[in-house]
């Protein structure tokens, strides 16, 4: 492994994040830390993950939701200290790694079918 990879691996280990195994199409709840003056609180942003970019410390994921009839997308750095927790709410069944086509779809067409079999499998594994 080259020096850069080793460095990033070390930094990722130092960050000590417990990141669930999610991919594009899954519905996520992202718990983000928000600073207001001296106080810190947690805000939950819920939406569909439409892309994951794997790039070591620079890895990000994009979460899209419809807020007051307006499409909103947020790109989160995967290893950001500002992310308290990532919660996987629902597993989607999709055929693509990047769901940018969701941007032009609205309403019924913007649905993603739940992957029930996979959800069941993961639940069983969690039980074990």
């Amino acid at each position: 492994m080259n020096v850069l990879r080793l460095f990033e691996k070390k930094k990722i280990e130092e960050a000590g994040k417990d990141i669930p195994n999610f991919k594009a199409g899954d519905t996520l709840k992202v718990h983000t830390k928000i600073k207001e003056g001296k106080n810190e609180r947690i805000q939950i942003y819920e939406g569909v993950c439409i892309a994951r970019k794997n790039n070591g410390m620079g890895s990000t994921f994009t979460v899209r939701k419809i807020s007051f009839n307006e499409g909103v997308e947020r790109i989160f750095p995967l290893y950001s200290p500002n992310i308290e927790k990532i919660e996987k709410v629902r597993i989607g069944k999709v055929r693509r790694a990047k769901l940018y086509y969701m941007r032009v779809l609205r309403g019924r067409k913007a649905r993603i079918v739940e992957d029930i079999a996979k959800a069941q499998k993961e639940r069983n594994e969690a039980k074990k």
Binding site: E8, G58, P77, Y79
Partner: peptide, 14 residues
């Protein structure tokens, strides 16, 4: 020169 990457500082800024 090894290459470029990103780290987070104490204010959680990239």
């Amino acid at each position: 020169k090894i290459g470029m990457t990103r780290v987070f500082d104490e204010n959680a800024q990239e």
